[in-house]
Design a protein around this nucleic acid. Structure first.
Length: 741
DNA sequence: CACCTTGTGTTTTTT
DNA sequence: ACACAAGGTG
């Protein structure tokens, strides 16, 4: 190691420093929540570069593309160089890059298309229909899961029955699996899992290629190692095989993707998997207050399957956790919104200090409404992803067909959209022509147009469809992608159709989304001058929710607990903490799944730097019906002295009566809280109608003040009050913590 | 073939 | 509540 002083190394604690400067051989860093994990990775890369290791010999695998992007820019700042690491991204994007370059070795068309889960599902449905398997009796999603599982476990199609066992179900899976693979091959498509497994296949069958990449990837870093699955693990083993300079960073307590094939013990197994590994534990937390950290520890320590570690922090004790008890989900949303408004004014917070977390995406609805109602800017991460919206996927389908006329999934999607009188009967007819003449579907279409002299409405529609596609194919080389897309959009008549299909305001939004897509293509052209349309399309397919999170925008963030991993916020709301929702009822059946829910809860809680609010509603409408809830067992795992019930007026618009308040069944430990909150709710500090100009009031924080005026804004009363301490302030009567003197 | 009605199921988390 | 599929009618 060179003896130069690296100024940035002085910012590290001894363990971090050790992890950063460990040069050769396998290294596992157990990095607890908030222990400076990202910092270690970035500094380590910077250190490697300082040691003279070329940028292109460093591979850094991140969990999201966003994380990769952030890492790139942070490294550039740190080493003050404009060039950024070449090999940095998710497993999927890295494998994609390799496959594009090496496709020829495994007789793959290098212009292959990446299909997302929705596409995979619709392809599976098509296969099932073709095989006369009733979609109602067998859930296509379960087939998809079975296929995906097999791929993750690196079970090849031929070995599937041997490996999964012979049963009614596996036989069906096997037959659909076969057809699914055949269809994908015919149309040059790869699904998410193929990206990884095909790369491994490539390496295993072409030692020379593997060796080339082993030589390239001299230093490997893997973030969120606890969330990798078997195939990804296999990939790492292969590429690290020569130099063995692999550094993995993770936290088994934050393993929350076992449903995707990750298993928390990969982390624990690292020592036996790689030769002479070094282990470093980072146990100092720099993020959370003492209270938040110990409450989180109190929860996660109930898990049995974990590496023992004790996180500690030098941060101050901070406030207790805040428990918000709500009548129903609407009340919950209002209470949270009020707290945000209150905190913003009183603590001078900005909106991006807050994040509202929930276990399931559907829960975002009420918060969204409440935030809109109160004019609070927000960003919603997940749910309906931009590139997954129907209109976007419809239009992308046109582009995909133009560039890959074999793409049957896309053809099926838009051959009759906009409506062209092409129904299932007609499509079947084309299929027959295609089989009989041994030509692909699109050629069969042309064949039909030429040879079928009848003039049905469908035939006319087909001509229209072909003219759009042909226009695209014709100008594929003469027009820039963005220009071509603009023209295709016009030709396809999609926008006119949108206005016929939807009410104006919705159609407008969808049109805006499509224009946004064109903008995104233009941006792509600028950023990747050499990029091909396939590159753009795959980028789109691998684009994830969390990629759109904008930390700078002054907006309240809403996202699932899963997607918040890796982020931190001063103030965190964990909402809908009820049995059945969190832990989710589907995880209630086995102990392992329950432990994962607990880890998930831990992940959510440890995002909070300063204040952690936990809320639950005693009645919740979910999937169409309202039912009583029980508070989450995780709440009762928090030591009582760390928890303080938030006072607040019950939602006056609530349909629930006070007697229902006590009807809720409770986990024993929280009963006292309920009794308490009920008493507090009764002592509402101020009466809505009893305030008038000139009254003297007492504010929780600012003390004595005089009401100067009362205005009505929307449905709220806004008080202008002059305080002795801070002067004039505007307060909303609905949530101002004031008492009349 | 499109449209409407009815019925049925399905609802975790994501690259 | 919602989405989707099937089934019937114009």
């Amino acid at each position: 190691m060179k003896q130069t002083a690296y100024p940035f190394l002085s910012e590290l604690n001894p363990q971090q420093l050790e992890a950063v400067t460990h040069l050769n051989g396998p290294l596992a860093v157990y990095a607890g929540a908030g222990s400076g994990k990202t910092r270690v990775i970035i500094y380590r890369i910077a250190f490697l570069l300082e040691q003279g290791i070329p940028m292109e010999n460093i591979l850094a695998v991140t969990f999201t593309n966003k994380a990769a992007g952030e890492m790139k820019s942070r490294i550039s700042t740190l080493i003050q160089a404009s060039k950024s690491p070449k090999w940095m991204g998710t497993f999927h994007s890295i494998c994609l890059k390799i496959l594009r370059m090496e496709a020829k070795h495994i007789s793959l068309n290098s212009g292959f298309v990446v299909i997302d889960e929705e596409d995979s599902l619709s392809l599976i449905k098509d296969c099932m229909k073709e095989m006369n398997i009733d979609i109602k009796r067998i859930n296509p999603k379960s087939i998809y899961n079975a296929i995906s599982d097999a791929k993750i476990q690196m079970v090849e199609l031929e070995d599937y029955l041997k490996s999964a066992g012979q049963s009614y179900f596996t036989e069906i899976v096997y037959s659909i699996f076969s057809l699914y693979e055949k269809r994908k091959r015919e149309t040059s498509c790869l699904d998410f899992d193929d990206l990884i497994t095909q790369t491994i296949y490539l390496f295993e069958h072409h030692p020379a290629v593997l060796e080339k990449y082993q030589e390239i990837f001299q230093y490997i870093l893997v973030d969120e190692y606890q969330d990798i699955n078997y195939s990804q693990y296999r990939f790492l083993q292969l590429i690290s095989g020569k130099y063995n300079n692999i550094c993995v960073v993770g936290d088994d307590d934050q393993s929350i993707y076992s449903f995707r094939g990750a298993s928390p013990d990969v982390m624990l197994k690292f020592t036996t998997d790689f030769p002479n590994p070094k282990m470093i534990k980072l146990e100092q937390n720099y993020r959370c207050s003492k209270t938040i950290l110990s409450a989180s520890n109190a929860i996660v320590k109930n898990n049995h399957k974990r590496e023992k570690k004790v996180l500690w922090t030098d941060n101050e004790n901070g406030n207790p956790l805040h428990l918000i008890i709500c009548m129903n989900e609407k009340d919950e949303a209002q209470k949270i919104v009020r707290i945000i408004q209150e905190q913003k004014i009183q603590e001078n917070r900005s909106y991006n200090d807050f994040v509202i977390l929930y276990r399931v995406n559907v829960a975002s609805r009420n918060f969204e409404e409440a935030l809109i109602e109160n004019g609070i800017p927000y960003q919603l991460i997940g749910g309906y992803r931009f590139y997954q919206r129907k209109e976007i996927k419809d239009f992308l389908a046109y582009i995909r067909i133009v560039f890959n006329p074999l793409d049957r999934i896309s053809i099926n999607r838009v051959i009759n959209y906009p409506k062209r009188n092409i129904g299932s009967v007609f499509i079947h007819k084309i299929d027959e022509i295609s089989v009989k003449n041994n030509i692909d579907f699109l050629h069969a279409c042309r064949h039909l147009i030429k040879n079928d002299k009848s003039s049905t409405r469908g035939k006319k529609g087909l001509e229209e469809f072909l003219s759009v596609i042909d226009y695209g194919i014709e100008h594929i080389n003469s027009q820039k992608l963005s220009v071509l897309c603009e023209n295709l959009l016009k030709k396809s008549d999609m926008i006119t159709t949108l206005y016929q299909e939807y009410p104006d305001y919705i159609a407008k939004e969808k049109e805006a989304n499509l224009l946004e897509l064109i903008t995104a293509i233009r941006r792509f052209e600028l950023e990747h001058p050499a990029g091909t349309v396939q590159d753009f399309l795959s980028e789109v397919a691998l684009f994830s929710d969390s990629d759109q999170f904008d930390a700078v925008a002054d907006k309240v963030t809403m996202m699932t607990v899963h997607s918040v991993k890796g982020l931190e916020f001063p103030i965190v709301f964990m909402s809908a903490m009820e049995e059945g929702l969190f832990p989710h009822y589907l995880s209630n059946t086995n102990a392992e799944a329950l432990e994962e829910e607990r880890r998930l809860c831990y992940v959510g809680m440890t995002r909070a730097k300063k204040d952690l609010y936990i809320s639950y509603a005693m009645n919740r409408e979910i999937y169409g019906k309202t039912s009583r809830t029980n508070s989450s067992r995780f709440i009762s795992e928090i030591p009582e002295e760390m928890l303080e019930v938030v006072k607040g007026r019950a939602n006056i618009h609530s349909e629930n009566t006070v007697s229902e308040f006590f009807g809720t069944k409770l986990i024993p430990k929280t009963i006292s809280h309920h009794a308490e909150i009920y008493e507090k709710e009764k002592q509402i500090p101020i009466d809505l109608d009893s305030i008038q100009t000139g009254d003297e009031i007492d504010h929780k924080i600012w003390g004595r003040g005089v009401v100067l005026s009362i205005e009505s804004v929307n449905q709220d009363s806004v008080l202008r009050i002059h305080f002795d301490t801070v002067g004039e302030r505007l307060l909303n009567l609905r949530f101002a913590p004031i008492k009349k003197i």
